[in-house]
Nucleic acid binder design. Structure first.
Lengths: 139, 139
DNA sequence: ATCGCTTTTGACCGAGAGCTTCACGAGCGA
DNA sequence: TCGCTCGTGAAGCTCTCGGTCAAAAGCGAT
């Protein structure tokens, strides 16, 4: 099971916005893209999806750009994954009625594990981990 | 994150072989395919991969077919997923060096959760669940 | 009002993967 | 030798993914 580059880009974008969140200012797409190593034109589409899901919001015109719609503590990795794909975990078997019920149960268990793990990772945690790592250099 | 139909087919195939495991006889591809609602010509390719990973084995000639190489209790859903794709969970971010380390940690946690969940589901369990369900009708 | 900045939207395209089918070769038993 | 089965490779088809581009639209400043 391979995760798409899109999910990765989306996570990077949200992390970038989260780092910038305390300033309260909007971040331009171009700056966000170059800071995270993501093609700007592609990032635009991802940001639009993030906005549609209420994760980010945008400001137009000069001094415009993107910022998070909620605090980083309120955004989980699962939210981001659901924003760019429909579901965190999906398989044709779950919607196939002539799939054996015991198998469907197995896929469901896998899905639940995935959902739970993704919901348990918030971007505030990631910010803290990054800060901890940086603190190492000062010791 | 979408799971391919191939993984589903592989799981069905192994479940079908597991049900037939106690007899010790080989199961023809055609029979296995029609029993599980899988295109036979495609199933062949999947079975070859399962065989290459030591999950199934084959017998040629008349009375030939496929059977499990180990007991159903020794085969986890993770084994099957790893047989048809390379990994249970993979993302370009994990091998991208200029991805933020805190993000890589997050993906790794997701991967671990997935691996653990997939390793914890054996086909013996699925057989038992199926048997339990069948017993319901006799009450 | 107009201009420059930004997001927004939609269309487009090439490459590759996934799914499926087919045809033919190879091993085994009668 | 014949019939049965697996084994293997190749082909086609569709669809998604990753990425680009251009034009529209909102906002602020001059």
């Amino acid at each position: 099971m391979k995760l798409s580059v899109k999910s990765d880009y989306a996570a990077r974008a949200v992390l970038g916005l989260a780092r910038h969140y305390p300033t309260g200012a909007a971040l331009r797409v171009e700056d966000l893209a170059s800071g995270q190593g993501v093609p700007a034109n592609y990032l635009v589409q991802i940001l639009i999806e993030l906005k549609a899901q209420g994760i980010a919001k945008s400001v137009r015109g000069k001094e415009g750009g993107y910022l998070l719609a909620r605090a980083p503590a309120e955004i989980s990795l699962g939210d981001v994954l659901r924003a760019v794909h429909g579901e965190v975990f999906d398989t044709p078997a779950l919607s196939d009625p002539n799939c054996a019920p015991e198998l469907r149960g197995a896929w469901q268990r896998l899905k639940d594990a995935m959902d739970k793990a993704a919901a348990g990772i918030t971007f505030q945690q990631l910010l803290d981990e990054g800060a901890d790592k940086e603190k190492m250099y000062y010791i």
